[in-house]
């Protein structure tokens, strides 16, 4: 009884020593539970990916990984609060393409891309575009041609969300315009598409497969996916490139920490995640959501965010969303 308490006290002392000791003790990272902020609500895809990760990560790191759901503003609130946490590697968050790079260009978020230490990209989903099954547009080219002469409306999950920006950048590249009508979520956008309020829908590819029956019947038609090659979950849908449009874009999620986390900790986390993402079990679980495992290391991920920002900045200026 008494002995147990001494052991516990000793553990606490070691833990506190490690916290005060700083870099010298960093080798022993992690010595306490890690909090993972999921900037979306329970039950969403991001939440489920985070929970999928938590168990294998706990095993690899030897410390509990506690999920904290902090939804709001398409993921920006959770990230904003992450940047206020101590950069010791014990608070991390799931960031996404649009929240890390584009969001701070638009509104007062309290952070920018430099407020983070990138750790690893986890998954990606190709951006895509869909129309109603009775729509006159059979191919992406039909749609682009039509946009040159008439004004069409499209929708997607939220203004300045990943899908909206993906389509806006594509349209800007083609030199055409379309009216964006906001939806609260991809499903809400689907309602607008099916009710005839908008002519096409931009969304992550993962939203589409569940809408098709076994023999391929559906209320919608997916015109193209902006992936490098045909997407394994929808092999019948051609890529943008195949249809003559050189455009590749994907929505992705990755792990980030506040700026200033020691390099050893970043490397430690990043390597553990790499090993985990590359296991067949993880990919298999991801298939349930139609996600692709897509590991990228800290430097490459940082580069990706910066590149996205450069592509998106002129488009944001054009549609009037760039922050003054």
């Amino acid at each position: 009884m008494f002995k147990k308490q001494i052991v516990r006290l000793a553990r606490i002392a070691v833990a506190m020593g490690a916290m005060i000791g700083g870099p010298a003790a960093a080798q022993e990272y992690p010595v306490k539970p890690i909090q993972m902020i999921v900037p979306f609500g329970q039950g969403g895809a991001t939440d489920q990916v985070a929970r999928l990760m938590a168990a294998p990560l706990e095993e690899a790191l030897g410390q509990p990984v506690v999920i904290i759901n902090q939804p709001g503003a398409g993921g920006a609130i959770g990230l904003s609060n992450l940047t206020k946490a101590r950069p010791d590697g014990y608070t991390v968050a799931i960031g996404s393409d649009s929240t890390l790079g584009a969001r701070p260009l638009m509104s007062e978020t309290g952070y920018d891309a430099d407020s983070f230490t990138m750790i690893a990209r986890l998954v990606q989903i190709p951006s895509g575009v869909a129309v109603r099954v009775d729509s006159p547009y059979e191919t992406l080219n039909d749609l682009v041609q039509a946009l040159k002469t008439e004004r069409l409306a499209y929708s997607g999950s939220g203004v300045a969300s990943g899908p909206h920006l993906a389509m806006a950048v594509f349209l800007a590249q083609q030199g055409v315009q379309a009216t964006f009508v906001n939806s609260d979520s991809n499903q809400d956008g689907l309602v607008k598409l099916l009710s005839g309020e908008v002519d096409f829908l931009t969304g992550g590819g993962s939203n589409f497969p569940a809408l098709f029956g076994e023999d391929g019947q559906s209320d919608i038609r997916v015109l193209g996916l902006a992936a490098e090659e045909r997407w394994s979950f929808m092999p019948d849908v051609p890529t943008y490139r195949e249809q003559g449009f050189d455009y590749v874009n994907s929505q992705w999620f990755g792990l980030v920490a506040p700026a200033g986390v020691p390099q050893e900790i970043v490397d430690e986390l990043s390597s553990k995640i790499k090993a985990m993402v590359e296991t067949p079990e993880f990919s298999q679980r991801l298939e349930g959501f139609f996600f692709n495992a897509a590991y990228l290391g800290p430097t490459e991920m940082d580069g990706l965010v910066k590149e996205d920002m450069q592509n998106v900045r002129p488009v944001l200026a054009e549609i009037g969303l760039l922050k003054n």
Partner: peptide, 10 residues
């Protein structure tokens, strides 16, 4: 509301 701007959208 004076300096809200118009933002995106049609």
């Amino acid at each position: 509301s004076l300096d809200m701007g118009t933002g995106a959208g049609g």
